[in-house]
Design a protein around this nucleic acid. Structure first.
Length: 421
RNA sequence: GAGACCAUGGCGAAAGGGCGAACGCGGCGGUUUGUGACUCCGUUAGUACCAGUUCGAGUCUGGUUGGUCUCCCCA
């Protein structure tokens, strides 16, 4: 029957879109305070960018990208994450030439071809920030703080920060060997998934839910860090402590993108089905060079907006969205209907959210519509009022209606609907 | 990529092969030619789609599409 939206996508309808706007404006205001500025990059890029940036062997690149050939026979991909595009833009626009580091944020859709489930969609939205140009561990901490601040500002509780250091590529390679030496002998005793993971991504085996207890003696990456990594990580933790940002050390935390170095972190919360990660990020010191720019270090995060919204819902948080009308014009009779458009326009000119009936409905139905509109007052216009150059303001919630001069209607409404503490 | 469950009006929800698809909410109209939230009355779908079994299917079978959830992985 008719057309349907593609699987794993959503129509964000009125009533819900206001909630999105609220979450987005919260993100923007956080960024204003942390001095991150918005960047808007294309939602598709050349496929090669993601292969290079995200990593050829990641799940994202191997099986989740929306890749297509454009009419010029170039391979394009709908962005599966935000960092690669931002870094590309950083390099292309030569931001490395700026005297200050780049502190950028974005809000927008991402695309991954996966089976949808609670909190997972094929088109989803991320709020992300990237700070490029400094290796200061304080910046890692600031990015972590920003995300934590965002959730707290929305009123969410139970959001925790998992923190790890994944070192440098050299550190990781060495650790990988150590880990394999530990895992391979016990290979047969591990669950099926882990046996497969040993080959693909041994670091992830430690995260297994089934075999948790078998890994108590497993080597920890935190013990394998070299001096520079360790120093950086220690300073990150020190900064977080000073900022009063709580976190949980999780040496088994591994992120799904290849570009992370040193700091890696995830925000976790319960309440979205089987999913507990609501956002994450980390440092990516080799990425800018990989994309073809100067060897600039960077750190960033990406937060799932759908997951944030889901969490708001599961925690029963309902912000006042301010999507109600201020006044509803009830027109009684033909003359009133004649006068209604002009009257409505004058109110809107004065900054008032004015609604009226366009379906030729009877009085009773107009009052019901007035109630639905959320307006606190109905402005009732009939022949009597019209003759006297007046209009009646009737409180929707009940009570006496008062007559107001038509010329003073806007002011009267403003006075009546002014926010009262 | 694999699996489980589900699919009736704007919404919620009945009908476990058979009279005109109950009921509630909501909408519209009337009761009350122009001042609503109460009452009463009327009205508002043919059961996601396609095919099959049957005298007869919303109810059984198969397929398609979509949804929910889970594994994998992540936001």
């Amino acid at each position: 029957m008719g057309f349907q939206k593609p699987p794993g996508t959503q129509d964000i309808m009125p009533g819900n879109s206001e909630l999105w706007q609220y979450v987005e404006s919260t993100a923007r205001d956080i960024c204003r305070r942390y001095r991150f500025r918005e960047i808007r990059t294309p939602i598709f890029e050349g496929t090669e960018l993601f292969k290079r940036g995200v990593g050829e062997t990641t799940d994202i690149v191997e099986k989740e990208m929306y890749t297509f050939e454009d009419r010029g026979e170039r391979s394009m991909t709908l962005r599966p994450e935000g960092t690669a595009g931002v870094v590309r833009s950083y390099v292309e626009n030569k931001l490395y030439g700026d005297p200050d580091i780049a502190k950028l944020y974005y809000i927008g859709p991402m695309f991954r071809y996966e089976r949808a489930q609670a909190g997972r969609y094929r088109q989803f939205h991320q709020f992300g920030v990237e700070a490029i140009g400094s290796d200061d561990p304080a910046l890692d901490a600031e990015v972590i703080a920003l995300g934590y601040h965002f959730y707290r500002e929305l009123g969410l509780t139970g959001v925790s920060v998992d923190l790890n250091s994944v070192g440098t590529p050299a550190v990781r390679a060495a650790f990988r060997e150590k880990l394999l030496a530990f895992l391979l002998p016990m290979r047969e005793s591990l669950c099926k998934d882990c046996q497969a993971r040993i080959d693909r991504n041994p670091l992830r085996v430690l995260d297994c839910k089934v075999d948790q207890d078998k890994f108590t003696d497993a080597p920890s990456i935190l013990d394998s860090l070299d001096e520079a990594c360790e120093k950086h990580f220690a300073r990150v933790r020190e900064c977080l402590d000073e900022m009063s940002i709580p976190y949980r050390l999780n040496p088994r935390l591994v992120r799904g993108l290849d570009y992370y170095t040193h700091t890696a972190f995830e925000y976790k919360a319960q309440g979205i089905g089987a999913i507990d990660t609501i956002g994450g990020g980390g440092r990516y010191n080799g990425l800018v060079a990989e994309i073809g720019g100067d060897d600039k270090p960077g750190v960033g995060l990406g937060l799932g907006l759908e997951r944030t919204l889901l969490l708001l819902e599961s925690q029963g948080i309902k912000p006042d969205l301010g999507n109600q009308a201020d006044v509803y014009i009830v027109a009684l009779g033909e003359r009133a209907e004649q006068a209604a458009p002009g009257l409505t326009q004058r109110l809107r000119d004065a900054g008032i959210a004015a609604e009226r009936d366009y379906l030729g409905r009877k009085t009773k139905a107009q009052f019901k519509a007035a109630e639905r509109s959320g307006a606190r007052y109905a402005a009732v216009l009939g022949d009597d009022e019209l003759d006297r150059g007046e209009i009646s303001l009737r409180p929707i919630a009940g009570g006496e209606q008062t007559a107001v001069k038509l010329s003073e209607l806007a002011d009267a409404i403003k006075k009546l609907t002014a926010p009262t503490p």
